[in-house]
Simulated assay, not measured.
Amino acid sequence: MENNDNNSGNARRAFLQKTAIGGIGLVLAPSLISSSLNDSETSEINSTKKEKMNTRKLGKLEVSAFGAGCMSISANYGAPANPEEGIKTIRTAYEKGVTFFDTAEVYGPYTNETLVGEALSPFRDKISIATKFGFQIGASEITLNSRPEHIKKVVEESLKRLRTDRIDLLYQHRVDPNVPIEDVAGAVKDLIQEGKVLHFGLSEANTQTIRKAHAVQSVSAIQSEYSFMERSVEKNGVLDLCEELGIGFVPWGPLGMGYLTGKLNAQSSFDSKLDLRSAFDRFTPESLAANMPIVNLLNRFASNKNATSSQIALAWLMAKKPFIVSIAGTRNTPHLTENLGAYDIQLTTAEFQELETEFSKLKVYGGRMNPMQMTFCQ
């Protein structure tokens, strides 16, 4: 029996490492039990005093200056959160001025779209929902699939889970080398003409792919990992291309997948069955310890601003480019409140430059994902 259990655990870990492709959300989660809203609950939500937040543009899509990443509520950063707490967190984000919410069919899979759809249904016409396609989700294996007929099938299913008649921003989650990007863009263009999708996005795509897609259907947003400590998009031309073409940029992992919060250290552990970070080089004990000077740098600035390291990291992204909309993820309202506090932090030109100068003296240890997972990123 012991040997069988070990074999089962090893197999599950191998599956997680094979399929947890940089935040795509493939840790299987229990099904959500949807709780219907009664009329009084819906009325209470709609009458709640809503805070206002400045907006930014992702192409032609106008959204709040900060968005909300919903993935971690359902998958990938440990066991799924209680659905009621997740719904409360999403609705609190809306009350605090957030109008842009990010999910994907593969988060859960499926459960996160279901939760997001329930949470946002009372004020659907006042917010924008982003979701993603790009995978063939099987019982034991998940592979790339961006064939046009599959895209359209996925959209129909996502619309049902999200309780809506249109998707405001539809991303290709990962580029499929077996399907020309022109065909992918053409399929999304058809969906836009049908009114089922309003805007098109790409995730982890290179500059060549972005240009080809943009020539067929205007790309509104690019989503890639980007944070104070992870700056690949500054070096590979993607961020510059967004500026050139008028495309918005949405960083996933804007807090370094939790590292820049300052709450992780070399003793932190990650469940190999439920937490995708367990397979990432940057989250080994050695890398967690070696990268601490980056957190210390953020903390030095935070102490002068009566802020936290998370808030300085998010304020830095906001100051970087006017077309960047971060989607820091959280599963509870205290962390949400902390993250959104970054909106009120203004970095002066001198402070921003000092952060850049001091960071340039540091080295980042560990790759952002393991080599296999990086093959899915262009």
Rank of each mutant, 00 (worst) to 15 (best):
N7I: 05
K18S: 11
G22N: 13
I24Q: 07
G25M: 06
L28Y: 00
I33S: 13
S34F: 02
S35G: 05
L37S: 01
E41K: 08
T42K: 15
S47P: 02
K52R: 09
M53V: 10
R56P: 08
R56E: 08
R56F: 05
L58I: 05
G59W: 02
V63G: 00
S64I: 10
G67N: 05
G67M: 13
I73A: 04
K88F: 08
E95Q: 15
G97F: 10
D102I: 05
D102W: 03
Y110S: 05
N112W: 03
V116E: 04
G117I: 04
P122I: 10
D125V: 06
G134Q: 00
A139P: 06
I142T: 14
P148F: 15
H150W: 15
R166K: 12
I167P: 00
L169E: 01
L170V: 04
Q172V: 14
H173F: 12
H173N: 07
V179H: 02
E182L: 09
G186Q: 14
G186R: 12
V188R: 00
D190N: 12
L191W: 11
L191V: 11
L191R: 03
E194Q: 14
G195H: 07
G195M: 07
L198P: 00
S203D: 02
E204P: 08
E204N: 11
A205Y: 06
T207S: 12
Q208I: 12
A213G: 10
S220E: 11
A221S: 13
I222S: 01
E225R: 05
Y226C: 07
K235F: 00
N236F: 10
G237W: 10
V238S: 00
L239K: 02
C242Q: 03
G246E: 00
G248H: 05
G248N: 03
W252N: 09
G253S: 13
M257I: 08
G258Q: 08
Y259H: 07
G262Y: 11
L264V: 12
N265Q: 03
A266H: 10
A266N: 09
S269A: 11
D271E: 03
L276Q: 10
R277N: 03
D281R: 04
R282N: 04
R282L: 02
T284W: 06
E286Y: 05
P293A: 13
V295D: 03
R300W: 08
R300P: 07
N304L: 08
N304E: 14
K305T: 04
N306M: 06
A307I: 07
T308I: 11
Q311I: 05
L314V: 11
L317S: 05
K320A: 04
P322H: 05
S326P: 14
G329C: 08
P334Q: 08
H335G: 01
G341L: 11
Q353E: 14
E358M: 13
E358N: 08
F359W: 06
Y365E: 10
Y365R: 02
G367Y: 06
P371K: 03
T375P: 10
C377T: 15
